[in-house]
């Protein structure tokens, strides 16, 4: 048991799987001597050598496709995209090949590949380094979309993803790398798919993930302290597969649903959760489904401007208060 920062947990998971399985490779820009721009591969090249910790040229489409080739041959590459925004350069290889090759080949090939990328804001990197793109990947059959919110999940979800036989889009919250920390029990064992209740409550079910989860908990705590609603905050962990059972169990208790995420609200995955609830949990709902996502503008680099765009704690509180008052 050790207390690790989120970035350290990622690194520890990589080291553990590299140790456990010689077929695990790390590839990406600056993952070698530099150790990753967010330190998530620090010193791994010294430990595992340049044959397994592989610096790539700045050719996202090329090296992601290359890693699909390695994966289809039985290696387990873990590819780092320096900022999730850069993954857009590799979408052809991910969506047209990696996600589909098992289907297209009728099971002759599978792709045990993890594509890690720091997503979201919170680090003042501006419009082309701060987007939340998970909803794009959740649309694609063949992919898994993992989004850890805690250090323990960064560790275990990454280990689970590396052991997974299908391609995983693993989106780390760059805003959590050095701010979020927690106990990581390396003897615990795989956690599997499924959401978890991050903060129990009785009045409103708040579905969130990744960096926004912490803002939801902060807002819930503030509301509770002020005598407001008791919010149950659910950490989805995976956008796909979507664990609706955990949400349904919570809704049976609270009868109110809010979905809060960092991607742009329009066409964001929150709409999928809301549509599912409207269609299958109608009898449980005592109010409208509240949605809150980023406004439909690019992400500005200054913190006070960014917080005007992505859900701030204040806007989350206001959304939940309104829903409680319905």
């Amino acid at each position: 048991m050790a207390e690790l920062k989120y970035a350290e947990a990622v690194r520890a998971a990589l080291a553990a799987e590299m140790q456990a399985d010689e077929d695990v490779l790390i590839m990406g820009e600056e993952v070698g001597a530099l150790g990753g721009v967010f330190t998530t591969t620090k010193d791994l090249i010294e430990q595992f050598g340049p044959e397994r910790v592989i610096d790539t040229p700045i050719s996202e489409s090329g090296f992601v496709g290359w890693s699909i080739g390695l994966a289809a041959e039985g290696f387990r590459p873990v590819v780092e995209i320096m900022f999730s925004d850069f993954v857009l350069l590799a979408l052809d290889q991910i969506i047209n090949l990696g996600a589909k090759v098992r289907f297209m080949s009728n099971g002759q090939f599978n792709v045990p590949l993890v594509i890690r990328m720091p997503g979201g804001g919170g680090t003042n990197h501006g419009p082309q380094h701060s987007q939340s793109l998970e909803s794009i990947f959740a649309q694609v059959p063949g992919l898994i979309v993992a989004m850890p919110a805690t250090a323990a999940d960064a560790y275990w979800m990454l280990r689970d993803s590396i052991r997974c036989d299908d391609p995983v889009i693993f989106i780390e919250s760059k805003g959590l790398y050095f701010r979020e920390k927690g106990e990581v029990d390396e003897s615990e064992g795989p956690r599997g798919f499924g959401a978890r209740v991050a903060r129990p409550g009785t009045d409103i079910t708040v579905v969130s993930a990744a960096r926004m989860l912490h803002r939801c908990i902060e807002a819930a705590d503030a509301l509770a302290a002020a005598g407001g609603p008791s919010c149950e905050v659910i950490d989805l962990r995976y956008i796909w597969p979507l664990d609706t059972d955990t949400i349904a169990a919570s809704l049976a208790k609270t009868n109110k649903l809010a979905v809060i995420h960092e991607p742009v609200e329009f066409s964001g995955w929150g709409g999928e959760v809301a549509a599912w609830a409207a269609a299958s949990q109608f009898e449980q709902l005592d109010g409208p489904i509240a949605r809150l996502g980023a406004r439909r503008v690019p992400i500005p680099f200054q913190p006070h401007l960014e917080d005007e765009v992505v859900p701030s704690v204040a806007r989350i509180e206001a959304t939940l208060s309104d829903l409680h008052g319905y």
């Binding site: 090949l97 002759q108 090939f109």
Partner: peptide
């Protein structure tokens, strides 16, 4: 696609199969 004969696959995206060949050969 026919793994047995070493034919990894066609690809309907122009040049889309190129990185697969590189990674697999490597």
């Amino acid at each position: 696609h026919h793994r047995e004969s070493g034919f990894l696959g066609e690809n309907a995206i122009v040049a889309g199969g190129l990185p697969w060949a590189g990674g697999a050969a490597w």
